[in-house]
Write a protein that binds this DNA or RNA. Structure first.
Lengths: 419, 419
DNA sequence: GCTATTTGTTCAGTGGTTGAATTAAATGGT
DNA sequence: ACCATTTAATTCAACCACTGAACAAATAGC
């Protein structure tokens, strides 16, 4: 039996439920570990105590638990000025639990290992056109990559605490891929197909070993973890479809059924061309990959899927008029749609990810212009538009990051695991 | 000194910070009170214990505190079948703290008192055109209504625990009304103008006595409290502008700066008429009050502001062709814009509020049709569209409800108050 | 070397939950 | 009418985790 949870941010231990005696320690483990994770430089126990309001005694006890559980390590005190016993710095352990990030996309498979500190310790991409490959065959190849990642993690002294698989499609709460149009998948029961392949089976520390999630969502999480400081943003992911990952206050917003983020079918012009969704003038018909390629005079058949964005960037950099115009038009349409979202949600940052990251130099100006013109509060608080910091690896890294992020947010689960 | 907080949902006691010894009780007070509030019929201590996982001993102790603090009352056991000592039912006290809801709008002032159970115990509306009236004069009149509400609350044995003022405009975190275009207000410091007018001054139980918030936000909250069961929805409020209150998992979403919900300027047609925001073809130019009136052949000057929606409804009910067409067109545009939001946020319910509530019989069909056509997941999970349950009183009631809701969410603040 | 200062640990004390035993109040069978 | 049964609520010793103060450790400055 394979247990799979839809990847879900665990913000606090069990706020919803009752608070038992032991929850106190459980919550404070999370609080202290969170401070260590958030701190710029390794904080001392005393600093954490002053910061949280807990006593130094309590913080020491909590930290002992965290060190015993290999979540935190002590570092030598950094040279400090002034009198007093030097503090021992605390930082997240780089040899404790780690997350395994996996991705299946149209033209590649990827696996990576991210440790508690968020560092990518291993990364492997295997290019291959997966559209003609059956789901079970694709997953079998993925298991190979996962196995190698597992071996590398062992060698580095890391313990894999869970895995997240990114797929370009709608995923339900049980890890069932409802629809991944570009892969040609429909109702693929990933957990069932992976049954019996550790480390992708069973549970780790009470949490299912594998979660399956949408690629755009995980890419947004990757961006969140990679660039600390921006807690709320819209991550627009331009591929064949256009997905949006919405991060609000450091938490990925998923919607009632986990199907949020469909930006491609926001109407841009009701009299525009017919869209495959049945509507007219959806954003996708202006700023989707096919639309941009078409406007630039290229046909999708000309080139492998993975190089579309790079090909366009190459042409644009060379000054190709048709391409520049196509990108400008796409940027305008994107700006119109994103402005609506920004007005609605009062966001202050827009991140161009996926294929758009490559094209950001040409998309950013028209997008920013539309935002300035259409966002009501732009005069008071300008909206910043930037390219994603991570490249195509963002979804896998985001998935792996989600695993370790969950441990940091609720360390008690990891500490209570049977070794 | 008047202390004002921007109305903010307090979801849990102090999850962000450290958990002290006393927080345990603090959290469990909230948990137990929350169960009592959420339960359909008065639950017994034993049922709460079974439900939360706490022991009956703990629940009894917690309930004692709640009863002593006049937040909970015991009711006679309801006739039950089967053996065993009958349970004593627990319900929210109807004679404890209450919330004062106030509203200043273009053509009326309103005040209401809502008790802990959510019942509206007092409601007064005073119609008057407030556009020519200065802010201080308008607030002076509001203080009169607040005074009467205070007197009524006293007579009913209720203790006012705070007040919320709804205004049709942008409000910042300190209660400063940045801009209320339809009132003609700009940078009005409401708390300063109300200084010295209890019960609108100072703090109650550690929480500022008065919070100021946007009317559309509070109307959405009113809907949330009035119709239990729908935890996530989009509340569209059609007045001169078009505001959207976004409720996600029972929490009003406010955006980074509290300025979320601007739906009126979602683009519907980039080639459409110019909008006062500077863009083109914004939703407001199709489904705003003026637009509908214009399309129906009426001019705004013809009628007082408050009757626009009712006048349109009257004409539509009488079968007036121009009005029916105008409403149909507005509904279509609204449906297009809302479909984008629903796709983005994966919502399953849309509530037509404000002026749209009156016009719902005519707006609902085209809105629903557009949603069915444009929402990608509509085939799996249809989106329900319905009129708001509360009428024009929704913002005041929602504001008062927010006060008592805050107490239910964190009873320790109320219990710790100096009597 | 001595004092001041800051860090981290030890330890008795306390608040709040736990779990079992006890009391309370009803039903149902004989 | 009486008693066993059943469920509700309270009482009480035990225990767990945090508190606060005292103490030990480690450094800078004089």
């Amino acid at each position: 039996m394979v247990a799979v949870w839809h990847c879900q941010e665990v913000t606090s231990a069990n706020t919803a439920g009752a608070v038992r005696q032991g929850s106190l320690r459980e919550l404070n483990l999370a609080v202290v570990l969170g401070r260590i994770a958030a701190a710029g430089r390794p904080p001392s126990r005393a600093a954490i105590a002053a910061d949280t309001g807990l006593t130094r005694a309590t913080v020491s006890a909590v930290v002992d638990d965290l060190i015993a559980g290999r979540l935190v390590a002590e570092v030598d005190p950094e040279p400090r000025t002034g009198a007093g016993r030097p503090a021992r710095g605390l930082r997240l352990a780089a040899d404790g639990p780690a997350g395994l990030g996996l991705e299946i996309n149209v033209d590649y498979l990827a696996a990576c290992v991210v440790d508690l500190t968020g560092a990518v310790r291993h990364h492997e991409v295997r290019r291959a056109d997966l559209r003609p490959v059956s789901p079970s065959e694709a997953l079998a190849r993925l298991v190979e990559l996962a196995g190698r990642a597992h071996a590398v993690a062992d060698r580095l002294g890391l313990t894999l605490a869970g895995a997240t698989l990114a797929v370009p499609g709608l995923v339900d709460a049980h890890g069932l891929v409802r629809l991944a149009p570009n892969l040609g998948w429909r109702d693929v029961d990933v957990p069932a197909l992976l049954a019996g392949h550790p480390p992708l089976t069973g549970t780790v520390g009470g949490v299912p070993a594998l979660t399956v999630d949408n690629e755009a969502n995980l890419a947004a999480l990757g961006e969140l973890y990679a660039v600390p400081g921006t807690a709320s943003f819209l991550h627009v992911s331009g591929e064949i479809g256009i997905g949006a990952g919405i991060v609000l206050d450091g938490v990925l917003f998923r919607g009632a059924r986990g199907w949020s983020g469909e930006l491609g079918h926001v109407p841009v012009d009701p009299a525009g061309p017919r869209c495959r969704c049945g509507g007219r003038g959806c954003l996708e018909t202006y700023a989707g990959q096919e639309a941009i390629l078409g406007a630039a005079g290229l046909s999708e058949a000309d080139l492998p899927a993975d190089t579309a964005a790079r090909r366009l960037a190459h042409l644009a950099a060379a000054g190709d008029r048709a391409t520049l115009d196509a990108l400008h038009a796409a940027g305008n349409a994107l700006g119109v749609a994103v402005a609506g979202v920004v007005n609605l949600l009062d966001l202050d940052t827009v991140v161009l990810g996926g294929g758009y990251a490559t094209l950001a130099p040409w998309l950013r100006p028209p997008v920013a212009a539309e935002l300035t013109a259409r966002v009501l509060t732009a005069a008071w608080a300008p909206v910043s538009v930037r390219a994603a910091a991570l490249g195509s690896e963002s979804a896998a890294v985001g998935g792996a990051g989600a695993v370790v992020h969950r441990i940091v947010a609720r360390p008690s689960g990891w500490l209570a695991r049977r070794e």
